[in-house]
Design a protein around this nucleic acid. Structure first.
Lengths: 247, 247
DNA sequence: GCCCGCCACCTGTATGGACAAGCTCGATTC
DNA sequence: GAATCGAGCTTGTCCATACAGGTGGCGGGC
């Protein structure tokens, strides 16, 4: 089961070596020439491989100096991030979920902009509670665009992985996402479903997900019960995916 | 004042075109061949340019299809993210800051790990309040490693940009960062300095910053007053800088 | 009118070569 | 002993080329 793509093979090999501790934090990686010789590849292919680790924030790179290991904790794939169920499974936990409410409505002004539809176009609103090992940790208020809404509505109420089911049923893949993170106080509904007091701090993640072609699929307001989940971002002068914006 | 590096010139040109609305969300970018001809560059150089926009999450790319614009809002440089003062200035606001407390202490177990020093090695603890247009928005509890601590201690109490001063004084550059985001309730001190009630929700960002060589400089617990600041991350199946982890 | 297959176009992967720019470290010098 | 210089190594940039693999649209066949 060898990888077909050479640069991915090299990248995987390096990722494994870093995770295994063969290159601890602060250690220097082999030079491009050495890696090229070891894998019988050209320098360009090796550069493509290390560029992937660079984007993940695992290593740092400066002209003239060997690449340095910055972190040994692996990062997640987008799929794992997008799918609550897949993420839970990867961590050895069991995810649950239940639809609390679901109804068609018209798009609000801001939602219309996020979903790239006209104001007052029909949208499907779904309120979903997610559990981790039977404990409620996340309340999702998701708004789906009309063209995918009917497929979402057809899903069973206790569907574990919406992502997976939508892919199986319609071939839809979530390819891109934009996430806005801040903190809010729990409202009455939040407190009720997440089993905490009104006014308790919640981590709010407002996100919009689109297909590979850039077509918006859903926009969601996710509220995480504190203490159960932490979001992590690695960045550097070379690649910076994180931005701080005025509210 | 033309850019020396070709691929950066091309990337900047595309970024501007996207920001200006010449390529709205959903629009297709010119093909690599067209861009190469327009800029009199090779295809490899063009690919290097679009790879940058891909990492920023501005565009999406699939084999066989033209690249598509996903977002038109520009992302920030790492420097702007790291420096509260520079970020505020870029947004047309004025940043203030005041050191509330500063003292040498011994490293706690977890801090020793983050700063890559021995347990009970000396560290400098600084409590700093940051303001935006004279309003308190952020309380920083920063721990500096011994080797940089003395330089930090020498800074004036109301130093606007610590990042800038440290660079001017010692040539130190913050090159990499790891950020963990979650929500917590305001403690007594938090509530006092940020002028809100105890128990109010705060966005907590625990971060560790290192030099270009990977040497940890500081680790910090930053608490943002809600409503003033939002963190944004863009990601995709191609590049995913964001990770969700168990607390 | 609808479906399907073909084909031009476009991006992904990989190679090989050349030069520029920056870092490290040892040797030389003061 | 400390500062300086330089050679060699390493990464950054750029080019030209070749082929594989996926997309999308056009046109022919049913």
């Amino acid at each position: 089961m060898s990888e077909p793509r050479r640069h991915e093979r090299i990248a995987d090999e390096l990722r494994r070596a870093i995770a295994d501790g063969r290159y601890p934090v602060g250690a220097a990686l082999p030079s491009e020439a050495e890696l090229a010789a070891a894998h019988d590849a050209s320098r360009g292919t090796v550069r493509q491989a290390v560029a992937a680790l660079l984007a993940e924030g695992l290593i740092g790179s400066r002209q003239g100096a060997r690449r340095v290991v910055l972190s040994t904790t692996p990062s997640q794939s987008f799929t794992e991030l997008r799918s609550f169920a897949q993420w839970a499974r990867a961590g050895g936990r069991t995810a649950g979920g239940r639809v609390l409410a679901s109804s068609w409505d018209v798009a609000h002004t801001d939602e219309a902009g996020l979903l790239q539809v006209r104001h007052k176009d029909p949208v499907l609103r779904v309120l979903r509670l997610r559990t981790l090992d039977s404990e409620p940790v996340l309340l999702e208020r998701t708004v789906y665009a009309e063209w995918i809404g009917s497929a979402v509505e057809a899903l069973p109420e206790d569907c574990e992985s919406v992502t997976q089911r939508l892919y199986d049923d319609t071939g839809l893949v979530f390819a891109h996402g934009e996430h806005h993170l801040d903190a809010v106080a729990a409202g009455t509904a939040d407190a009720d479903h997440l089993r905490l007091r009104r006014g308790s701090p919640l981590l709010r993640v407002r996100r919009t997900t689109t297909t590979a072609e850039g077509r918006p699929v859903e926009t969601s307001d996710d509220r995480y019960r504190p203490g159960s989940v932490v979001f992590t971002v690695r960045n550097s002068t070379q690649t910076n995916p994180l931005a701080r914006t005025h509210a």
